[in-house]
Nucleic acid binder design. Sequence first.
DNA 1: CGCGATTTGTGCACCTCTTCACAAGCGCCT
DNA 2: AGGCGCTTGTGAAGAGGTGCACAAATCGCG
Lengths: 245, 245
Amino acid sequence: MSQHRHPGATGRAGAVPALPDLPEATVARLPEYLRALHAIAETGHDTVSSEGLANAAGVNSAKLRKDLSHLGSYGTRGVGYDVTLLIDQIESVLGLTQCRSVALVGVGNLGHALAGYDGFASRGFRIAALFDADPSRVGEEINGLVVRHVDELARVAVEESISIGVIATPAPAAQAVADQLVAVGVTSILNFAPCVLSVPEGVDVRKVDLAIELQILSFHEHRKASLTALPGGLVATDTQEAIGT
Amino acid sequence: MSQHRHPGATGRAGAVPALPDLPEATVARLPEYLRALHAIAETGHDTVSSEGLANAAGVNSAKLRKDLSHLGSYGTRGVGYDVTLLIDQIESVLGLTQCRSVALVGVGNLGHALAGYDGFASRGFRIAALFDADPSRVGEEINGLVVRHVDELARVAVEESISIGVIATPAPAAQAVADQLVAVGVTSILNFAPCVLSVPEGVDVRKVDLAIELQILSFHEHRKASLTALPGGLVATDTQEAIGT
DNA sequence: CGCGATTTGTGCACCTCTTCACAAGCGCCT
DNA sequence: AGGCGCTTGTGAAGAGGTGCACAAATCGCG
């Protein structure tokens, strides 16, 4: 949730899948449904109710139904959703039918971990190339891939038909890397560097900042502490707050 | 954004900081403002306008002003915000005045990277203990910390007064780890495992799933591709989409 | 064939968040 | 002192997301 400004995309009833112009909030949840569906498929079930899937995905069942209804009607009343069909449908909407190639720039601490992360391959992504600006890191082999110098980005990106760039460099280097990625034609960037990237229209940037997540937790922790401190409450027994719905 | 259901916390005008009961969306942006402010402080400026700070943080200036107004009036009309004062104020609200101790469970690929990540220490967090269930990993030293067996969690958590738990285990192990963390009194969890955690009320869970971020990007990439494919548009020249505001 | 149990799809009301637009306040310059 | 330009803080309108509650649809069984 950040530098996204997507157009109306006026229901241009195209030949192929019709692209129903989903709400962002729905798009953000589809991957979670997909993961839950794969888990359910492995247990052998071949249909699942909205209630069941919602539990597995950690959301409200009404919300799940509304989300899925945006893709079309792929459920059967009185029965539920066909697991396999729904998986295919969501993967199709998310554009995961083709395996997407990812370029990872910055092979430091975090980049190393990302390069070795299994979760990508198993969900339709292929890390196709690794880059770093530090000459001492160039040539290193990680998980079967050789780290190249970032100057080769342009050439390699075309060869490997990169469709997504991941930035795991220190913050000061990130903007320059982003510019290079954009110059090569990459229009989707996942940014782990703690800074704001400025990119032209039409380029999507998503940001993941691990420290920010901790700080948000810190706020809630702080709030909880100052709530239990004052009220005439039992500070004793356990941490179970008697609050919320 | 997930398992958060925070109460009204009825403006209980307490003695100390008053805890103004911020909107979640605001809380999620405060850390970003904080980072931007630190960057601005380093350039030597000692005041900053809402416009300037908003740019540095990548948000709308009106939104920024409304966010800050929730903390109270710490700006001066015609001048802007005092950088140092605002930093102190935000850190205070986020509960970052004390250094928080973090326990990291799961020292695999990702856990390794997290254990070595500088960004935590520099922003008020201390990784106080590392755990893993794999005996062959126990004893290993990472960044000056020895990996302990997860069975020691209870003892160590108290010793180190852990306030946040980070789960970086494979998905199947995550729920058990979460249960243990909760049992020890941890009420804030950052979960990197691709699964839904079920925790009692009063415990906050934030989830980070790297593959999900890629899948969201994939969707937009897919959408962009199917838009440029049909319209009578110049597929040539560059990737600059002529869409959006 | 009809009925009841079950589950989807959705209209509606509520709520949160965003954005605009502007009055109020502050400092500086004359 | 007074006026002017700049910037904050906020009311109000709008957009988007959520969740309830129920009608519509489907299956299985007698």
